[in-house]
Nucleic acid binder design. Structure first.
Lengths: 302, 302
DNA sequence: GCGCTTTACGCTGCGCGTAAGTATC
DNA sequence: GATACTTACGCGCAGCGTAAAGCGC
């Protein structure tokens, strides 16, 4: 198996261009004999003379001409590959695929993504807003670099996934400003139970984490809807109250509505950042990961 | 400027495939620490980790995956270039462009070319049958590797061309079998002069070398034609005699005709093999060149 | 404790520069 | 004899193998 180095290729091309050992040696920062030996080594490796040299002139043999084309292309490709890799390492190029709960994707993430994309304009970011289980499935299958989800740590603890707590997301009551609970001095989950309640659909992560947080308390559900915007409409119409995580409160910022934090005891959901246990993140993904942690980590929302 | 060697690429790809330093090291015929150092050197050169390794598992980083594709292609291209060069050196591939006088192209060369092409079936041979000056021009311009021509050595002696005598080509009388000269005991140029003579066209190399050989004698020309086949027809019809080099006698091998060598004194033309003084021949061209010299060199024809 | 990678460390030899040799014009 | 490539030769350091040390599991 023939050995070949980029030094040899560069030396060869330099000599092919200069047609003079001394000049080519200087350009290569080598003594002339050392350069001569380098060329000889290459010729020996390839099994043929590449240059005709007498004391007056140096020029490519026909075989040398043949190799010149190939060598030029090889070196260009090599430099291209190196530059491409460097672009990724220096974050001029790249791609990050992130999966996040819809509430995060709509609420907190956009600002972080905007900052990231402004800093690293060459990096493409794919955002997949999916429910918690789907997010985790994406990470597991490799179609997302990491995910922001609210599954309990236990869910993925023993598996191939690594899940770390990013922040707590406190639950808030949302009701009309004229609702008795809007002015109730000491809120508690139990006090909410009698009132007509607008639930999220059973498969939504907000609902699932709420069920866990309230257990064993049951709400007096009068509606069960898919979208938080619908919850907002129903609450505003006076048809009921609801309880949602702080991350989703932007849906409810209206004069007609009141949002009030519920007591801390258990009434929080945890937002986890999930990645594969084996296999590090790409430079781009790690950078976004770190930015997400820096901006959202250890944040006890409202 | 980043250095890269084929060893490094091969080591990288072996490790990417084996995902185990020890196995990859054995496959590379290196000790495991030496192999480890080789990978580390590559990673340092590229400025990034290519493998995630803990003691249990070794696998490509995202950047490593990126480089894997490029490395595979680089190595394939490199091996391709080396193999292509070897094919030329081993004469499995190649091209020879040869220019030769029509008389040589029709007479002696075909057998040599047939031998050459049978021995080296992968080598393409281009034959250009042209007059002497055109042959030499082809060589000078680089559109032929070498030429077989009859120009005097002086013509190209001081130039960029190298002309060496290949063989002598003795002139022969051609006449009808019933012609008085067919049985003339002691032939000489002078004895031919009175008889009606079929000339070749003034620009043909046969004519030019004949003029030189006979000088200052003038023949009694009754026709001046382009092609030797025409000369043959005219002679056979009894319209005259002619004098042609031995190389062309195959045109006149007929029962109705007689061919007789003329005395050696001056009545020969020299066939030269001409190549550029600078720049060696390709392996393929040199091989054909040597075969031509071996088969036709030092041959005093008839 | 076992398996695998990394670190430590002497040693060989490749490849460098200097200097002398050789060939061509 | 001037110029430019090649050979000769001593030397330093890159890179090898052996042996010991980390490090997960």
């Amino acid at each position: 198996m023939t050995e070949l180095s980029s030094r040899q290729l560069r030396a060869f091309l330099t000599l092919a261009e200069q047609r003079n050992f001394t000049r080519a040696a200087n350009l290569s920062h080598l003594s002339q004999p050392a350069f001569s030996a380098l060329i000889r080594t290459l010729e020996d490796a390839l099994g043929t003379r590449l240059f005709d040299r007498d004391t007056r002139s140096v020029q490519l043999t026909p075989e040398g001409k043949l190799f010149e084309t190939a060598a030029q292309r090889l070196l260009d490709d090599m430099n291209g590959a190196i530059a491409d890799l460097a672009d990724h390492v220096e974050r001029r190029k790249g791609r990050v695929r992130i999966a996040a709960l819809p509430s995060l994707a709509a609420g907190w993430l956009p600002a972080v993504l905007a900052e990231f994309m402004a800093t690293w304009p060459g990096i493409r970011v794919d955002l997949d807003d999916a429910l918690s289980d789907a997010c985790i499935a994406r990470v597991r299958s490799g179609s997302a670099d990491f995910a922001l989800a609210s599954s309990g740590d236990g869910t993925v603890a023993d598996s191939d996934l690594l899940s770390r707590k990013l922040c707590s997301d406190r639950f808030h009551l949302v009701c009309r400003a004229d609702h008795p609970l809007a002015t109730e001095p000491k809120l508690s989950a139990r006090k909410l139970a009698p009132w007509p309640f607008i639930q999220m659909a059973r498969h939504s992560s907000v609902r699932q984490s709420l069920d866990v947080a309230l257990h064993p308390l049951r709400m007096n559900a009068v509606f069960e809807v898919e979208h938080l915007a619908t919850v907002m409409g129903l609450v505003e119409a006076g048809l009921g109250i609801s309880v949602v995580p702080a991350l989703t409160l932007f849906h409810f910022r209206r004069d007609t509505l009141v949002t009030r934090p519920l007591p801390v005891g258990g009434l929080t959901r945890t937002v986890n950042i999930v990645q594969r246990r084996e296999g590090s993140l790409s430079v781009a993904a790690q950078t976004l990961h770190d930015l997400v942690v820096a901006r959202l980590g250890n944040l006890n929302l409202d």
